[in-house]
Design a protein around this nucleic acid. Structure first.
Lengths: 146, 146
DNA sequence: TATTGTTATACTCTATAACTATA
DNA sequence: TATAGTTATAGAGTATAACAATA
């Protein structure tokens, strides 16, 4: 058990190396116009949470308010995100996905799903099921906020 | 199966968010003097590969040669890394861990192991075993180089 | 001519500070 | 006075360019 924890820790460490993460992001956003590794979290966060203010979205994805709003502007220029006045609070601006933005998210999700599915194609379905469950627990323990 | 791939992909995406990765690195290097989130890959890479030149180490950890040598200098100043002339090639410099560097790596490995062990404490040993196996496969598929 | 280590330089990502408008 | 959005500015992290020494 401890031996497994050590091995898992090592594998995890390798997986978290900047180069691997960057490479994966590149693969995900390669075919999608207007999104890159930096704006990806903003777009996918918006998809997860639905229409939200920049402040709330920033909290969700763990980025600063100022960065979030700037990336949102980039995505808006690319036609993937829309801004609208908040009816309840004149200070606030609601960010939302455009239909094109939704399509982009869909495409990236499918790409990631395909990569994972391919990577797990040699594993038994029962193993995959266990893996999914334990991975979720690991995330909960490692990133309590998310 | 496809459903699991989707779920795994989503969890994975969350895990790779910059904020989570940075937070984990901070936890790992918190108690260790002279190491931070940026120099960590250099130190742990050196532990994995043993004494190596900056160029070779850079390849291993997916960083640029110039960055690797600069971080190595930082670690050297902290007393964790040593430089020595290469006997076979006068151009080359061999980087290695000092005893203190080895202790630092040991401490960080133990910390990561403890975090993972804790995160998996609610899972059955058989589940953990499966998880370790599938995770390794996933890494192999995602990061062929590592 | 190619490669090693290194430094100088520039670019990108992210955060802090500051400004405006509204609560 | 506090908060939302935004812009200006500064700080890290990283890569590209350039240099000296050796192969």
């Amino acid at each position: 058990m401890t031996a497994h924890a050590e091995q898992i820790a090592t594998t995890f460490g390798a997986l978290l190396l900047r180069t691997n993460r960057a490479h994966l992001y590149d693969r995900l956003t390669a075919g999608v116009d207007g999104v890159d590794g930096t704006t990806y979290p903003v777009l996918s966060g918006l998809a997860r949470t639905g229409p939200a203010t920049a402040s709330r979205l920033a909290e969700l994805i763990g980025l600063d308010r100022t960065v979030t709003t700037r990336y949102a502007t980039r995505l808006q220029k690319a036609g993937l995100v829309a801004r609208a006045a908040d009816a309840d609070d004149a200070r606030a601006t609601r960010l939302s996905l455009t239909p094109e933005g939704r399509r982009a998210v869909q495409a990236m999700r499918a790409a990631l799903g395909a990569i994972v599915a391919d990577a797990l194609s040699t594993s038994e379905p029962e193993e995959v099921e266990v893996f999914a469950r334990v991975l979720q627990r690991l995330l909960d323990a490692l990133a309590p906020g998310a």
